[in-house]
Write a protein that binds this DNA or RNA. Structure first.
Length: 287
DNA sequence: GTCCAGGGTCCCA
DNA sequence: TGGGACCCTGGA
């Protein structure tokens, strides 16, 4: 177990990164003075991430290189930021969202998380994911001093091999409703080799999207989220109710998000974060 | 207590 | 192309 500094807090803003809706397994620990602390699990590594005095440090068992990759610190966002900053309203989103990183999450976990997300709110999505991990995820050995809402031993995300052997009734405790059969179908497709998520990382975003949409319960939105957040195809641009509202309100009717280029997904996260934060903090009324 | 919307998808007219 | 059904929950 060791603690290492992985970034300055301008490059990586952990609050924005964990709260911009791309991940569901990181929880804020009630704040003590002057620091922001989250705990969660990435892959098989439980971790505590702390931001204070302009630095982000991580306590975990995993090598520093793992976290560099997870937080996408190798990729330079500055050219994309500059491009987005030339577009009215989106320039403000860049300012608002500076420090967001598109996490390199496990593709299977991302796929399941966004299957669960459909027609659901973020608090409930997190609850379902949490119960899923507790019930069917492998308990992880860790000396990490989990505390408060991170209490108890951490669990890995349930492996597709486990989920493939389940029946919808086995998932009833999740209270995932009609989404439960979709999770099982996805797991069976992965286990049979029909759907190979590692291969889809290397194909085009379009090919990956089409392959995912063959599965039941996966339409445009969920497929795009899995492609962006799980496969790290940065040009994917998921359109949900928040983004639709933003596009209608702030862009010309013929605006094509693909004009935002190969990093369009980053713009999507900036927009999503601004829309949600402004609504949450009351700077903006919901229509 | 009721009502409604929540990072959708699918099916059928 | 549009509307309803699908599960369930937190907040108004």
């Amino acid at each position: 177990m060791k603690t290492t500094v992985i970034a300055d807090s301008k490059t990586l803003d952990i609050e924005k990164t964990f709260e911009c809706g791309q991940c569901f397994r990181w929880n804020r620990v009630p704040p003590s003075t002057g620091e922001t602390v989250y705990c969660g699990v990435a892959g098989r590594y439980p971790a505590i991430v702390r931001e204070a005095e302009g630095r982000v440090e991580i306590t975990s068992d995993s090598p520093e290189s793992f976290w560099h990759e997870f937080f996408d610190l190798e990729l330079d966002y500055s050219a994309a930021d500059a491009l987005f900053s030339r577009i009215p309203w989106l320039d403000g989103c860049v300012e608002y969202g500076k420090g967001i990183r598109i996490l390199r999450q496990d593709p299977w976990e991302a796929l399941c998380s966004f299957i669960i997300s459909q027609c659901n709110n973020i608090a409930r999505i997190k609850g379902i994911v949490e119960r899923f991990c507790l019930l069917y995820g492998e308990p992880l050995d860790s000396e990490l001093p989990m505390k408060d809402d991170c209490a108890g031993p951490a669990h890995a995300f349930p492996a597709p091999e486990i989920v493939a052997g389940l029946e919808p009734a086995d998932l009833e405790p999740l209270r995932a409703g009609y989404r439960a059969p979709y999770l099982i179908a996805a797991a069976r497709s992965v286990c049979s080799g029909e759907l190979d998520l590692e291969v889809l990382k290397k194909t085009s975003a379009e090919e990956a999207r089409s392959a995912l949409k063959m599965l039941p319960g996966i339409g445009d939105k969920v497929a795009n989220c899995a492609v962006l957040f799980g496969l790290h195809h940065m040009e994917a641009f998921p359109v949900d109710v928040w983004i639709r509202r933003a596009l209608e309100e702030h862009f010309p009717p013929d605006f094509d998000p693909s004009s935002l280029g190969e990093m369009a997904g980053l713009a999507q996260q900036y927009m999503f974060y601004r829309e949600r934060e402004e609504t949450r903090t009351g700077k903006k009324e919901i229509k």
